[in-house]
Design a protein around this nucleic acid. Structure first.
Length: 897
RNA sequence: GGUCGAUUAGCUCAGUGGUAGAGCGCUUGCUUCACACGCAAGAUGUCACUGGUUCAAGUCCAGUAUCGACCACCA
């Protein structure tokens, strides 16, 4: 190891260990195992996706949970896979088709197009999986699933067919969110409201019976005017009461339309009169239903105007038509004014264009098992972390609307519904299709196509991607009709790790699916990760270019560095601002551990990992670090229990860096020198090995590659075995060592470390930090001072620390009151009485403040009466210490004159 | 409009009623034979504001301000 570079180089180490784990099938779950099961199903990334930091955060957490569970002796199943991501994938392939061949999907036809999508999937589908492997994810890749696998698809069809037969799925003409670019309906969840700078047009319609009399109307969408079938006013609005029941003239195409009264209208807004276009607005549609109005659709599906009666608008894009329609009104003298107006407009999540509310024939699902799903979270059968997300969940569940599950796409699960050919036209245009229509025999709903397919036509739509995702926890483990060992052993799963942004899309629906199809909750805990933002607090996005490529980060800092850096800053809750400096810290930490081990190897290659520690002569520093390591294990357990990963990271970091390297290693360096006894060297190396071996094991879930590498290199594990498969020991390091010995040792070690710090401080104040020839004299001190003097010197960087109770410091000799006694730093030629006076005065003032603080507190009767006894006791001890210090300092100060 | 968060060092953030913390950055000094991806020392705080509860509040409660997320939305 000593010939290796001074800095840790992770890239090759990470790749080779990952391959070794794969080769040894370390990640594969055994359903026949007797061990306690632990399972996670990974949220499947889009099959065409590439890894971003959100994935890294999410999958690192899952990997930590999985690896920790293995260490706790569980049989672990971490089931990975990918999602076919209907719109996203189809859009990508369509774009490629357009760019490379100048064709649309319709040009090539359904079958040929789907072939192209599968080709694309074969080519690009593995990218994100390989990226997850690069990150070190210990998924059971032998069980990787894809939402369009044949077996998985069978679940989707079965569920559709079952729900239809339960009367929960129906087809109907409804107002849906239509994406004019993707040419499909979208669910409410796929619509993103965005604030827009719009215009509010004030126009007027002339009354039929009273020429010259006008009704003024405000609208943001003059281009839908051709679809107007009425004007609505509030029934409470006295201004317009006289118009109700009369008719006004629609300018183009010219028509007479009624004025109706409807409670929906807000008299305060605009002019208080609302044009009603039932085909192009959800609220208008409802008003239309209430008032029995006609529905006139004036758009083509792609958002261009479909209105041959008005030739100068016909065929125009809706936004071009808006301007043109406004201009026409202007020409006709019907436009009153145009105001700038801020409103919210729904955008298509994928295509990023305004949604067009549109009436169309779609399949809907009345959600099943809603009450069970609500209760599961409300009663805590499923626990949400952070808990406050359960309120968001409850809110949504309470206002739940039927789910539009059909999509007018080609890439996805085809709706398993067939229409008898001779009845097809009739059925396609039926106002609604429900369970009752099955009895006609002209409808076939099943996982299997009809026996005589030539007489049937399948519904052309596919299902919403989430209609397959919501089955993920069980459909990945079990095929339809199969008795699966996997499900028996691993379902329900333990933890789900996901982002709060898909709580409605995915989490809530999975809970309902779990209860509906498995009569059981799908997971016990849901851990919602933070959303990663850039340093300015903006969401990471491709268009902003503020999303660093995790692969680049791994090349630069190592997968372990990236994992550790990210975990330390990921809070248990809100958002996290990404800063590359944090990842750099992760790399630095890896390097620090590597170098600690490198140092150990340079001190000797003999192994002491198995040494019985109670047979050794242990010094205070040994006891302190052993105890610290045992404490660490306890604290880690607590932090893991609450899923506080950032705290786990901080505990590991502080222990290794501050306790192990800065204190312990520095204190015991003397034992490894040539002039040290063999016994001392053996004790120190044994303790090093015992603590490091255990530390590496504790760190393993966070930095799997580095810990596996060092454990092997240091010989802490038999060749051929893996750290990742080794269970955490239940025995503490200090078992077998007397508690009194430990207590005394720890106190002493703490005293030495504190004293060293005070003395270094003193040196620095006199600008002697770099000098090694400084000697310290203790005028008083504990019994153990002589024994630890050499260590103290080493830590301070001094020539020596000697006890001399008869020592009379020359006036102005710098001194300090420490846990190891009253110490002076005599320095010929450097003594400056005035400077030392100033320094001591400052110190006395500081300690004086502490003393009075303690005194005030203890003087408060109600504090003494009410506070916990141990708190009061601590305060008493503190006061005593401060007072002793103060007295000694004041004496020093008096000696100075 | 409704709901839920957040506000602590220059920056990013921990903080669980009882002595305000970490890392980065900054200043100073160190090529100390593991590590400059390092070591040592140092400076930096009205814990957003106003009240309340308490012997004691960064922490609990109420209100205010600002920022953010989600849900619902008036054309």
């Amino acid at each position: 190891m000593s010939e290796l570079p001074k800095a840790y180089e992770p890239t090759e180490v990470e790749k080779s260990w990952y391959q070794a784990w794969l080769d040894a099938q370390c990640f594969e779950a055994d359903p026949s195992s007797e061990k306690t099961p632990y399972s996670i199903v990974a949220p499947p990334p889009n099959v065409t996706g590439i890894l971003h930091l959100g994935h890294v955060l999410n999958n690192t957490i899952q990997d930590i949970l999985a690896r920790r569970a293995r260490q706790k002796g569980c049989e672990v199943l971490w089931l990975p896979g990918t999602d076919h991501a209907g719109i996203a994938t189809q859009t990508k392939v369509e774009r490629q088709l357009r760019d490379e061949e100048g064709k649309t999907r319709r040009d090539v036809g359904r079958e040929a197009f789907l072939e192209k999508v599968w080709d694309w999937k074969e080519k690009h589908g593995g990218i994100i999986i390989n990226q997850l492997k690069r990150l070190g994810c210990s998924c059971d890749w032998s069980r990787e699933r894809f939402t369009m696998d044949a077996e998985y698809s069978e679940w989707v069809s079965k569920v559709f067919s079952d729900l239809f037969k339960e009367g929960l799925i129906y087809r109907g003409k409804r107002m849906v969110n239509w994406c004019p670019v993707s040419l499909t309906a979208l669910s409410d969840e796929e619509v993103i409201m965005k604030p827009q700078k719009s215009k509010l047009f004030y126009m007027k319609y002339e009354l039929v019976d009273e020429p010259g009399q006008f009704l003024e109307i405000a609208t943001t969408r003059p281009e839908t005017l051709m679809g107007d079938v009425a004007v609505a006013v509030s029934p409470k609005d006295e201004r317009y009461a006289k118009f109700i029941g009369k008719k006004v003239k629609r300018p183009f195409p010219a028509a007479e339309i009624p004025v109706v009264a409807d409670d929906h209208v807000d008299p305060e807004f605009g002019t208080g009169a609302l044009k009603i276009t039932p085909a192009h607005d959800k609220a208008d549609f409802e008003i239309g239903m209430r008032n029995d109005l006609e529905i006139i659709d004036v758009f083509h599906p792609d958002g261009t105007v479909n209105c041959p009666e008005v030739p100068d608008l016909d065929g125009l894009d809706r936004f071009v038509a808006r301007k043109k329609a406004a201009a026409k009104l202007e020409e006709m003298g019907l436009m009153i004014k145009v105001e700038e107006y801020d409103n919210n407009v729904g955008f298509s999540e994928r295509a990023d264009v305004p949604i067009e509310p549109r009436i169309s024939m779609q399949w809907f699902l009345k959600y099943p098992a809603v009450e069970e799903a609500k209760a599961a979270v409300a009663d805590g059968d499923i626990s949400y972390r952070p808990a406050h997300w359960s309120k968001t969940y409850a809110n949504w569940m309470n206002g739940i609307q039927d789910w539009c599950v059909s999509r007018q796409l080609w890439w996805g699960h085809r709706i398993p519904v067939w229409y008898r050919k001779e009845k097809e036209g009739e059925l396609q245009n039926a106002e609604s299709l429900t369970l009752a229509d099955l009895e006609t025999g002209d409808l076939h709903v099943s996982t299997e196509p009809p026996a005589d397919p030539e007489n049937w036509t399948q519904d052309g739509d596919v299902l919403d991607t989430w209609f397959s995702s919501w089955l993920w926890p069980f459909a990945t483990m079990q095929n339809v009709g199969e008795e699966s060992d996997l499900v028996k052993k691993f379902y329900p799963t333990n933890d789900l790790v996901t982002g709060p942004d898909i709580i409605f899309f995915w989490v809530a629906r999975m809970v309902m699916a779990g209860y509906c199809f498995k009569d059981e909750l799908p997971f016990k805990n849901v851990f919602f990760t933070a959303i990663i933002r850039d340093i300015q607090g903006r969401k990471m996005s491709k268009s902003l270019g503020n999303s660093p490529d995790p692969i680049d980060l791994m090349e630069k800092y190592g997968a372990d560095g990236l994992r550790f850096g990210l975990m330390r800053i990921a809070p248990v809750g809100s958002d996290v601002r990404f800063d590359e400096a944090q990842i750099e810290e992760g790399r630095n930490f890896a390097n620090k551990i590597y170098n600690a081990c490198r140092f150990r190897r340079m001190a000797g290659s003999e192994l002491f990992g198995e040494t019985d520690l109670s047979t050794l002569t242990l010094r205070p520093y040994h006891l302190e670090i052993l105890a610290g390591c045992d404490d660490l294990a306890v604290k880690l357990e607590e932090a893991y229990a609450d899923y506080r990963f950032n705290e786990v990271g901080a505990l590991l970091y502080d222990f290794l860096w501050a306790e192990f390297c800065d204190k312990f290693l520095e204190a015991v360096k003397g034992d490894l020198r040539d002039d040290a006894t063999e016994e001392a060297g053996r004790a120190t190396l044994s303790v090093f090995d015992a603590v490091m071996a255990r530390f590496l094991q504790c760190l393993h879930p966070f930095m799997p590659h580095l810990t596996e590498e060092l454990t092997a290199r240091m010989g802490y594990i038999s060749e051929g075995d893996f750290l990742m498969e080794k269970e955490l020991p239940t025995e503490t390091l200090l078992s077998g060592i007397s508690a009194d010995l430990v207590r005394a040792g720890r106190e002493q070690a703490t005293a030495v470390y504190e004293t060293a710090s005070r003395l270094r401080n003193l040196k620095a104040e006199y600008r002697l930090a770099a000098r090694k020839d400084v000697r310290f004299i203790a005028k008083s001190g504990p019994d153990w001072l002589e024994a630890e003097a050499a260590t103290l010197s080493l830590l301070v960087g001094a020539e020596g620390v000697t006890r001399d109770e008869s020592y009379l410091p020359e006036q102005g000799t710098p001194g300090a009151v420490t846990a190891a006694g009253e110490l002076f730093m005599p320095l010929d030629g450097l003594i400056d009485v005035a400077a030392e006076q100033v320094r001591l005065d400052k110190e006395i003032e500081k300690i004086g403040k502490e003393v009075s603080k303690c005194q005030n507190k203890l003087g408060n009767e109600r504090f003494v009466a009410n506070a916990k006894p141990e708190v009061v006791e601590v305060e008493r001890q503190r006061l005593e210490e401060w007072q002793t210090n103060l007295a000694q300092l004041e004496k020093m100060r008096a000696d100075l004159g």
